[in-house]
Simulated scan of single mutants.
Amino acid sequence: MSKVLAILGELSDRDIDWMLVNGTRNQISAGTVLICEGKTIDALYIVLDGSLSVSVAALGNREIGKISSGEVLGEMSFVDGRLPSASVRATEECLILSIPREKLTEKLEQDVLFSLRFYRAITKFLSTRLRGTVNRFSQDPDYLLFQDSTTEEPNQPALENSNLAKSRYDWLMQRLSDT
């Protein structure tokens, strides 16, 4: 959960409202492949509920990690324009907020302040993920690359805007349940 809170803490209420209006809430069944390694993805995803498995073809499609509520998916491909380096499959029924790449790109080009907040949020998110991965591998080289977001990351700094981010997440979930 802390991952999505890190992003929501950087965005404004108006930014989140835009994501809700332009995104689509999708219920996906267990076994559904959300992201396929090496294939273009057309959205940025926020996992609202459920669990997913991350695998890599080079390792014989072995599971290398788990994803759960609060994770953001597709952000690396969105930022660097490269194809996904792993596949992500639902291990149970999941609720996902999909924000179309085309709409998000257009918004980023038209709204400089949104762009600033969005990229700052994604940068902090990726930085936290990288620091957590480096820390875990320094302690245990066999550790999963992506860990369930319910697990606390060692030495993770406290969120500066954690109360605001949590209230925004609750607001986002309430808005989605009303639609």
Results as ranks from 00 to 15, higher is better:
Asp140Val: 05
Arg14Val: 15
Asn155Met: 04
Glu160Ala: 13
Phe137His: 14
Gln139Ile: 13
Glu153His: 02
Glu160Trp: 06
Ala57Glu: 15
Ser177His: 08
Asp13Gly: 04
Ala121Met: 03
Glu37Trp: 07
Gly9Tyr: 09
Leu116Lys: 15
Pro100Trp: 03
Ala43Gln: 09
Pro157Gln: 07
Phe118Glu: 02
Pro100Met: 04
Ser77Ala: 13
Leu44Gln: 08
Val4Pro: 01
Tyr119His: 09
Arg129His: 11
Ser77Arg: 09
Gln27Glu: 11
Glu63Phe: 03
Ser127Val: 07
Glu37Gln: 15
Glu160Pro: 08
Lys66Tyr: 10
Ser69Asn: 11
Leu20Ser: 08
Val134Ala: 13
Gly70Val: 05
Met173Asp: 09
Ile35Gly: 04
Ala121Phe: 00
Gly38Asp: 06
Ser87Asp: 13
Leu44Gly: 09
Asn22Ala: 05
Gly65Tyr: 00
Gly23Gln: 03
Thr40Ser: 15
Lys166Thr: 08
Glu75Tyr: 00
Ile122Gly: 00
Leu164Phe: 06
Gly60Tyr: 08
Asp140Ile: 05
Ala86Gly: 02
Gly38Val: 06
Ile16Gly: 07
Ile46Asp: 03
Thr133His: 08
Met173Phe: 06
Ile122Cys: 00
Gly65Cys: 03
Gly70Ile: 05
Leu145Thr: 13
Ser127Met: 05
Arg168Ala: 04
Arg25Gly: 01
Val47Ile: 10
Cys94Ser: 12
Ser68Val: 07
Leu95Pro: 09
Met76Ser: 13
Leu126Phe: 00
Arg117Asn: 09
Asn61Cys: 05
Ser87Pro: 08
Asn61Ser: 14
Phe78Glu: 09
Arg136Ser: 15
Val47His: 05
Ser162Gln: 11
Ile46Tyr: 06
Ser167Gly: 09
Glu109Trp: 09
Glu63Val: 06
Asp142Thr: 10
Gly74Glu: 01
Val4Phe: 03
Arg168Met: 07
Asp148Thr: 00
Glu102Tyr: 01
Asn61Asp: 12
Gly50Leu: 07
Leu164Gly: 12
Gln174Ser: 10
Gly9Asp: 04
Tyr143Asn: 14
Leu11Thr: 01
Trp171Gln: 06
Met19Val: 02
Glu93Asp: 15
Leu5Ala: 12
Val33Arg: 15
Phe137Pro: 04
Phe146Thr: 11
Ala86Ile: 01
Val134Met: 07
Val21His: 14
Arg82Trp: 09
Leu52Lys: 03
Leu34Gly: 04
Leu8Thr: 03
Leu176Phe: 04
Lys66Asp: 00
Thr40Tyr: 13
Asp17Val: 02
Met173Glu: 09
Phe137Val: 12
Lys66His: 12
